[in-house]
Simulated scan of single mutants.
Amino acid sequence: MIRIDIQPRLRFHQRDGNSLDPQGLELLQAVHDTGKLTEAAARVGYSYRHAWNLLGKWQAFFGSPLIELERGKGARLAPLGERLLWADQRIRARLSPQLDNLAGELELELNRVLQASNPGLRIHASHGFAVAALREWLERDASWQWEVQFRSGSEAIIALHRHDCEVAGLHVPAGPLGTLSMSRIQPWLRPDQRVITFVVRTQGLMLAPGNPHGVRGLADLARGELRFVNREPGSGTRLLLQDLLQQGGLDSATIKGFHNEEFTHAAVAAFVASGMADVGFGVEAAARQFGLDFIPMAREHYCLLCREDSLELPAMAALLRVLQNPEFQARIGQLPGYALSRPGEVLPLTQALEQWGRESPL
């Protein structure tokens, strides 16, 4: 069976026609992670001489150093190196869901022509760390053609209602906010739908390391001087934030940058890490990935929703086996701010909602 992976690739050009291959970005990331050029070179498979020459080529191209070496202190990125690495991280964070969707569509068409696999499940879910891990794990089973598309929470539920997919991602805040959240999608819910439990994740405020602006909670967003970056309209995370603001009697119009939007949790975190915003809202795992401070605001169940008759599909049994696999569960358990919630258990929707509504919101 054919697998397709599409990755963004930066190339730098000058007016005189000179260009620069982006292979040095991997080396910059390794320097950032290790703090030593020798270790960074070894990590990416370069000799020390090749790494040094590559950095020299980049420095000559840009006319500015990318790293700073200090005797006895190792190596660290210079301001230009930090900016280049941030640009690469932001591009990947923003484009990954769209490129993964495109890769999945191309895989499906090619494998249909090749008749290389059995039809699996069409899964529509909002992009997140647990869902990305699930997709990766499912694709290890080459006997099925999994079609995983990243969509906003509301788009996924509507797709399930229209029979455009068999499984939809659903996130429901714990406590009273869950009722408000579900009221928005009530027209597309049906009595025959079943919940497949998955994880509980923590969402909250992402802040620069050390919280330099002294942010304590959502009320601080209205101070005026703080620059905010949000998720896109229709995303479950943005709706959760709006519900929290309403609960606290706060007006989103007072938040500077409320309409600055990114399409993934990682992209929000990258925006804050770059210094282009002071505060973002999203999952803890994204904040930790970019070394940000995090203030938890809410817990929510991220589950999968399906029709009852879909439970009889052979591929559904394969999906449940993955969710109940101890190795997969250990992988999810490593994600900051994520906790397992009896993955793979099937419940009536009303029973799950009643249970989650009685839980503490944080």
Rank of each mutant, 00 (worst) to 15 (best):
P119C: 00
S64P: 11
E107P: 06
G74A: 12
A87P: 01
G63H: 08
Q98R: 15
P65H: 08
D88K: 01
A103K: 08
L110Y: 11
E109Y: 06
A87V: 11
G81E: 00
A60R: 15
A87L: 08
G120S: 04
R83E: 14
R90M: 11
A60Q: 14
L69F: 14
L102S: 03
F62A: 02
L85D: 08
Q115W: 01
A93H: 03
E68H: 14
N101S: 08
G74L: 13
N118F: 11
N101M: 07
F61R: 01
K57C: 02
R92Q: 07
S96N: 03
R83D: 12
E109A: 13
L66C: 07
Q59C: 09
L77H: 02
Q89N: 15
A78C: 10
Q115F: 02
S64M: 14
L95S: 08
D100C: 10
G120W: 04
G120A: 04
K57I: 10
N111E: 11
A60P: 06
P119T: 02
Q98P: 02
G63A: 10
L99K: 09
G81K: 00
R122N: 02
E109M: 09
S117N: 03
A116N: 09
S64Y: 13
E68D: 11
P65Q: 05
Q115M: 10
E107T: 12
P79K: 01
P79H: 03
A75I: 10
L80M: 11
R71T: 12
P79Y: 03
R90E: 14
N118R: 14
E109V: 06
Q59M: 10
D100V: 10
R76W: 07
L66V: 05
E70T: 15
G63E: 05
F61W: 04
P119R: 00
Q115E: 15
E107Y: 08
P79T: 09
G74H: 01
F61L: 09
L102D: 05
R112A: 12
L114K: 09
L77M: 07
G81Q: 00
I91F: 13
N111A: 09
E109P: 03
G72F: 12
E68R: 14
G81M: 04
L69H: 14
N101D: 14
L95C: 09
L110N: 07
A78W: 10
A93M: 02
G74V: 13
E68C: 15
P79S: 09
L55K: 03
L110S: 07
D88I: 03
L55H: 00
S64D: 15
D88P: 01
Q98K: 12
R90V: 08
L114A: 15
W86Q: 12
R71W: 12
L114Y: 12
R76I: 07
E70Q: 15
L95W: 13
L99I: 01
G63W: 04
A78N: 06
R122E: 11
I67W: 03
S64N: 14
A75V: 13
R83A: 15
R92I: 04
L55P: 08
E82A: 12
